[in-house]
Design a protein around this nucleic acid. Structure first.
Length: 137
DNA sequence: GCCAACGTTGGC
DNA sequence: GCCAACGTTGGC
């Protein structure tokens, strides 16, 4: 079981929308590093759901529902998509600002390479984020 | 709205 | 194969 972080601009697709939909296709990825991460995802892997630009916080959890398949949005076989299912929404988001203040999270890809839209997360990072979401009240 | 960081493209 | 130019992302 691996852990990931997936990014979305809330104006494009938010955690609220995912909660309503139950699950969604995660497509439109046009970056090889992100694509490679999509390919490595397995059913039931945990995904932190991050709101970029507007929000700048991890707002909830999703899990991988369907493993990589060709992105239906393009003819180019290089690009893949997955499906993710809604898991939970944090009552209080874990803000990027606070992640940057946490010494144990300095190595997160989110901190080091903010542009990568699908990124791996270490189990201990994942746990710590969950703890922060709970103690954040 | 600006700009730094990163990725991609294309001329040589 | 190098690198300048350009486009995009996303934090600030």
């Amino acid at each position: 079981m691996k852990y990931w972080l997936i990014k979305s601009e809330p104006g494009v697709y938010s955690i609220d929308q995912l909660e309503k939909d139950g699950f969604t296709i995660w497509d439109g990825i046009r970056n090889y590093q992100a694509r490679n991460n999509l390919n490595a995802m397995k059913v039931n892997d945990g995904c932190l759901f991050y709101h970029s630009n507007d929000g700048k916080a991890i707002v909830g959890l999703a899990k991988v529902k369907k493993e990589a398949f060709p992105d239906p949005g393009t003819e180019d076989p290089a690009w893949m998509a997955i499906e993710v299912a809604f898991e939970k929404r944090f009552s209080k988001p874990v803000f990027l600002e606070n992640i940057k203040k946490e010494p144990q999270l300095q190595e997160m890809v989110l901190v080091k390479n903010s542009r990568l839209s699908v990124q791996p997360v270490l189990p201990e990072e994942f746990e710590l984020i969950l703890n922060m979401a709970q103690s954040n009240q």
